[in-house]
């Protein structure tokens, strides 16, 4: 049973980053996904914070290693180092603060400058629960996401709305990219030697396919 599998018993390990302006709710999205927790007032993130969670995609265990980053501009030079090896990104804005949506463009550039071009990106409009304060119309964000060729979803970490779906969608898409790549290369990903790196995130040292050595715990 999955619940009894050891923490490091996984088939794939994918590194994701959470980016976006300060105060859009990145840390709460992460704690909702990783621990099912939410804090109305959580401390600001300085540097990076880190969490993991494993989910099942098809018949595989995918372990997500998620890096939550500081939002303020000052920390950008430092946090860009954490992008290394990321195969997925959730680019978060606050649906009730338009300026955080305007800055999405800068964050996208940041991502594209520091990560592999195959990275799976999802634009995430968080705080969708603040309906009376909405400043970014869904259609506007959706159109932007289409133009930029990213996935899109509106979430509420507070109401646990779409958080699970957003992360799962990104991880599933990465999984598809990875398995397609492996097929293209004529390899069955599960047949790769233990620890061999799949080259989805370029000089990636984290995201790896790992052959499970034992079927069940």
């Amino acid at each position: 049973m999955a619940a009894y599998r050891a923490d490091d018993d996984y088939d794939y390990l994918f590194k994701l980053v959470l980016i976006g302006d300060s105060g859009v709710g990145k840390s709460n999205l992460l704690s909702r996904f990783a621990k099912n927790e939410f804090n109305l007032e959580s401390k600001s993130t300085i540097g990076v914070e880190f969490a993991t969670r494993s989910i099942r995609v098809d018949d595989k265990i995918v372990k997500a290693q998620i890096w939550d980053t500081a939002g303020q501009e000052r920390y950008r030079a430092i946090t860009s180092a954490y992008y290394r090896g990321a195969v997925g990104a959730l680019l978060v804005y606050d649906t009730s603060r338009h300026v955080t949506f305007e800055n999405v463009e800068r964050w996208l550039k940041e991502l594209r400058d520091h990560t592999d071009q195959n990275i799976v990106i999802m634009l995430v409009g968080n705080k969708a629960d603040l309906r009376h304060l909405r400043a970014v119309p869904t259609e506007e964000a959706k159109a932007y996401a289409e133009k930029e060729n990213t996935y899109f979803m509106e979430t509420s970490a507070l109401e646990a709305l779409n958080v699970e779906t957003a992360f799962t969608e990104v991880l599933t898409q990465i999984y598809h990219v990875v398995s397609r790549k492996a097929l293209d290369a004529g390899n069955d990903p599960s047949a790769l030697p233990k620890g061999q790196t799949i080259n989805v995130g370029s000089k990636d040292d984290v995201s790896a396919v790992k052959k499970t050595t034992c079927c069940s715990a």
Binding site: S22, G23, N39, L40, E41, S42, K43, S44, Q72
Partner: peptide, 12 residues
């Protein structure tokens, strides 16, 4: 605004 946001989440 940044200061305001952060002061509110100082030792919450």
């Amino acid at each position: 605004e940044q200061i305001d946001r952060d002061v509110k989440r100082t030792h919450p």
